[in-house]
Design a protein around this nucleic acid. Sequence first.
DNA 1: GAGTTATATGGAGGGTGCCTCCGCTTTCAA
DNA 2: TTGAAAGCGGAGGCACCCTCCATATAACTC
Lengths: 192, 192
Amino acid sequence: MERKTEQPRRRPRADYLRNRERLLTAAAEVFRTHGGQATLEGVAKAAGVGIGTLYRHFPTREALFEAVYRREIDQMVALAERLEGEADPVAALRQWVHASIRLIATKQGMLTALALAVDKSSEIYSYSYKSLTGAIARLLTRAKEAGRMREDVTPEDLLLTLIGMCLVRTGPEFEDDVTRLADLFLDGLTRG
Amino acid sequence: MERKTEQPRRRPRADYLRNRERLLTAAAEVFRTHGGQATLEGVAKAAGVGIGTLYRHFPTREALFEAVYRREIDQMVALAERLEGEADPVAALRQWVHASIRLIATKQGMLTALALAVDKSSEIYSYSYKSLTGAIARLLTRAKEAGRMREDVTPEDLLLTLIGMCLVRTGPEFEDDVTRLADLFLDGLTRG
DNA sequence: GAGTTATATGGAGGGTGCCTCCGCTTTCAA
DNA sequence: TTGAAAGCGGAGGCACCCTCCATATAACTC
């Protein structure tokens, strides 16, 4: 028998780490400016590496999206957890929605990129969907327990509506417009 | 001076009309099954014409979308006009929303196709947007005049939200899911 | 129904992006 | 210093985009 766990023979090569970092930085920038139509060759060029290198680091377009945006998803989840401490559960939910819209606004192209390119069966999709649904669920439950929220609203309802509203708007008015729409929706779900 | 209006010297050629019809039929089918990623070469093939013929009839991808879907937009507008006669203005609005979702459901791929491929400055976009906004405006005004609707809701709010909700769902559950979301939204806007 | 002309056809071809593959280079560590 | 594992880049094959034009054909004229 060999050893149970093969520990890596070598530490990662310096060029590997350097190129990976360059690719992520370049990709975030290129997606932000070009949206979902950004070409991967453009990302590689911006990062100053060959296209082959990009594909070895991120074998699919989705893998690249995932690496670029997982951080943002995690931020949204973390914020929801922090807001569980808020006294007013409806205010907490609304704050979370507003903050999420603001976050997405700074990453113009993120959502379009995800919606256009990401297969619903992919890992990044289910990871994001599950994390966010879970985060919303806790905020929602508190509001319901306080009797301040329609009982039949699910976390999915809220997440999907929020995403949909973000998808139909673009440009400089994004944050204001989407916030307005989301508030209309939230007003209708809440009491008090 | 020549004659003011040049009347066409000849009537349209039979093959022109035939091919145009074939292209529209094929395009509707291909978009329905493949969504916005459908290739135009695929459409030409399905129609049994050369790619060059497709491009002469519809010089851009958007021109083809426009020709295929203008009818559907017009249907939604016509329905809104018919519903202006309804006694209950809130019920009328809800009926319109439900019917629109049902219509879109049968054209799976329509919305994705439009959202992915259509530039916001294009003719089909502004035509659709204006027609639909106008149609909704009249339904909305009646509901407001009856004191049954938030005063600060605009037709754009409703249209964008509806489109957004349609964008985030796909598959066999489409109609039920989207109707549910839209009802949540409408409930929150209306009184009585 | 033959000739004339306007109109329409199809597909080759040049351009671009996708992704794979593999010979060469760099880094690590012995 | 040197062997080999790990990583690199870009050529190349494929698919699709769209244009262009030599060829084909429908409509009109007499």
